[in-house]
Design a protein around this nucleic acid. Sequence first.
DNA 1: AATTACATGTAAGCGGTTACATGATTGT
DNA 2: ACAATCATGTAACCGCTTACATGTAATT
Lengths: 177, 177
Amino acid sequence: MSLRIALLGLLSSSGSASGYDLAKSFERSINHAWQASHSQIYPELVRMAADKLVTVEAEGTRGRKTYTITSDGRAELRRWIVDHRASGPARSEYALQAFLISSLDPADAIDVVRRMRAASEARLRELERTCELKESAGAAERDYFGKYALDLGLRQTRMAIQWARDTIEDLERRSPA
Amino acid sequence: MSLRIALLGLLSSSGSASGYDLAKSFERSINHAWQASHSQIYPELVRMAADKLVTVEAEGTRGRKTYTITSDGRAELRRWIVDHRASGPARSEYALQAFLISSLDPADAIDVVRRMRAASEARLRELERTCELKESAGAAERDYFGKYALDLGLRQTRMAIQWARDTIEDLERRSPA
DNA sequence: AATTACATGTAAGCGGTTACATGATTGT
DNA sequence: ACAATCATGTAACCGCTTACATGTAATT
């Protein structure tokens, strides 16, 4: 059901958008929180329209359908956010890797954690670029949407980098290479 | 494929275990990194046995089958950890919620973030309890397995709590309730 | 004229959840 | 006797990914 909610969230902030636009928003805007491809989005929008959560306001060129959130949709969105109890810890490949490195000999483990650190550093640069884009664009004014999530992403990524650094240090102390 | 790897990781650290044991390990040991239920585990173990990654060493009482990792299994495990490139950012309901709170009015948003903070605080207590159990048990000696993941979990959770605190503060500044 | 970007859909298959189903052993 | 725990399996369903499939408009 989370896809539906994410779509309602995006529509609620943008006013209206096509499936194509929403697919791009997933890539650009909330990519670090959620992902969805067009093959998932298009059929879901059709179902949401059937459920009166969105309407097709306009059909433009190239078969473009512009969806708009309804008041039912806004109500559903609000209800979900307010009522939803997150279902515990998520699956995280990152955490799984962290769990498994101790089964390697220290030299291999260090390689793996170095790679994890590099990945996180690349991600941090990406997120920081997103920040800059937001600031330079006029977005800053009414786009609190995404602000808190971006902040969370930055903290999360910096934490991961620090963990990697400390873990590498710990592994190096253990292996007198 | 990650389930298979997680199972190999658990078998690699424990020596041998039944499907039932492994299901419990998921609950108790790596619950914050990965989850799997018995209905997923049992068939997967059968497939892994067919692929010679594990063997059934003993069949005990109540139909209990004790699985042991083979050298093929260890090789597969090592290969995965060393070669695997994590596929970008994970789906996180927590981050999705963070993304959506700006679509609420500040009063509702504050309620939601307070609840998120409470959930993280509960989780932190759980993780800290796990730490204590580990220390008190003789586990400390050879159980580096899980140590780094636990550290990551603690950092992650503390970060989430701090984010929630700062976000509540920010929301309160914005709403002159 | 060719390429890129826009734009929407369908289908097969995989990984995972929930519910169904069965039975043995141990503790009270 | 009864309940809890141990122990293994199957089946339906859902969400998501990957690949297939089609066509239009703008750019170079």
